[in-house]
């Protein structure tokens, strides 16, 4: 069966840790890191990467436009 798998890449140094992407994700994939970036912001990252479907919700609400989204159809066994 074909399953959709996705992934996001956050431009960590440009993320402001606003958290707006977190509730926008229907799969609860994203969390803010305990670590901070060069500007002191707790940047967003994929906490549960297996669950990402590449729906783009997080990216389109990100005020700083720092999320790139990838999607593939994956064959599962």
């Amino acid at each position: 069966m074909a399953k959709v798998r996705g992934a996001i890449v956050v431009d960590v140094e440009k993320c402001k840790g606003c958290g707006v992407c977190v509730p926008a994700c229907p799969q609860d994939v994203i969390q803010l890191a305990k670590e901070v970036n060069g500007k002191g912001y707790h940047y967003a990252y994929m906490h549960v990467p297996e669950e990402c479907t590449g729906c783009t919700n997080c990216a389109i609400v990100c005020p700083d436009g720092v999320i790139t989204v990838y999607r593939v159809k994956a064959e599962t066994v």
């Binding site: 707006v20 912001y41 590449g54 783009t56 700083d64 436009g65 790139t68 990838y70 999607r71």
Partner: peptide, 26 residues
Amino acid sequence: DIIKPENIVYRRTPLLTDKPLSYCPG
């Protein structure tokens, strides 16, 4: 295997410059 250029479905538009936005977080 997912994060490859051919699999991009959303990226920041190149019509925004590379400058970090001056706005507050969020």
